[in-house]
Design a protein around this nucleic acid. Sequence first.
DNA 1: CCCTAATTGTTAGTCACTATCAGTGTGGTA
DNA 2: TACCACACTGATAGTGACTAACAATTAGGG
Lengths: 197, 197
Amino acid sequence: MERHSTLREQRRADTQRMIQAHAVRLFSERGFDTTTVNDVAAAAGVSAMTVYRHFPTKEDLVLADRTGAVITERIAATPAGQPLVRRVGGALVEAARAMTAGDDRFLLARLRLMIATPALRARHLDNHYVLQQAIVDGLGVDTGDPRARFRVQAAASACLAAMHTALEQWAADDGRTDLPDLIAQALAAAFGDETFR
Amino acid sequence: MERHSTLREQRRADTQRMIQAHAVRLFSERGFDTTTVNDVAAAAGVSAMTVYRHFPTKEDLVLADRTGAVITERIAATPAGQPLVRRVGGALVEAARAMTAGDDRFLLARLRLMIATPALRARHLDNHYVLQQAIVDGLGVDTGDPRARFRVQAAASACLAAMHTALEQWAADDGRTDLPDLIAQALAAAFGDETFR
DNA sequence: CCCTAATTGTTAGTCACTATCAGTGTGGTA
DNA sequence: TACCACACTGATAGTGACTAACAATTAGGG
């Protein structure tokens, strides 16, 4: 007997995707602040409580994805011998490839909301910060030495900033450019290294 | 006739400081989430409306300060000839000197809240992002070239990350170390340059 | 076919925040 | 000094995000 039913998980995932799709559509049409959670629930044909059971906060309706997990997994799978920036940057580019494998328009709509809505931008940046700490942990650098910690935090932050700027550029280009390539360009420009491309 | 009375401004500033002092004390004692704005208002001896008139959101009771403005002012006063990291880093160290000129315990309490409370951390990071954009603008780099934009965004982000890590270290040290010096060390460690010290 | 458990809906409640109106005190002016 | 305009404050009612608790439904596994 399996502890978690695969069928139940499937249905649950479907419900989440359905609710999130309605939410992102409504937020894009009417604006995030002027759309209530009740509106989303009504559009999705469920009660407000069901929305909150799947998404802890209204912001999560836009922000929830697996990007952070994908990135940390790639970091862990990276050989430790390479320079820090190379390891992190490579993982970011690979994660972007996985991200853009799905529905580009949906990702684009979510990104635009994150950029345009202060509340979403703040939560998005906080996610980046948590991701940065996970990256630093995953890199396995000695955290006892303050100098090493300062160095790796700055490097990880610069990598994420490059990705963030590339994401904004990608959204401004309406997703016409190749996102992984754009991130590689951003990393190369930031660190003067063409090997990301 | 002066449009803005100096006396009125003085009283207003005093009221703000008084409310913020009560707020930070209560938040530190009981926790941010478990303390209501009404509690703060009652402790300060004013109505909740008065609190909202002085601080737009509950988070602003902790976050409101002039650090961002000080930093951008210093950036603008920096000679354009130096390397980007030097210009930004120097401004951050000077701003930290101005910050720590006041009440260290108060600044420390606020920092601890920002670190420990997710809602405050997100807003704090968003303030850093806004500051980052102001820094990039203030540096006067040509924003038309994507490569230059990528580079300067990453550099500014790395500088702010170094400052952020130094602030956390300073809070962990209970403010015993010298904050400007710690930031200079963080910048030096991140960029391999001893000239910040 | 039944039983357990996951999922959902309903209701009532807290709290952050806003809009509005009215009262109060202060600072400059006739 | 008397007055007046205006900044400041308080009270009230309301919206909306979010939580707790309980009941109802449904679906998967034996």
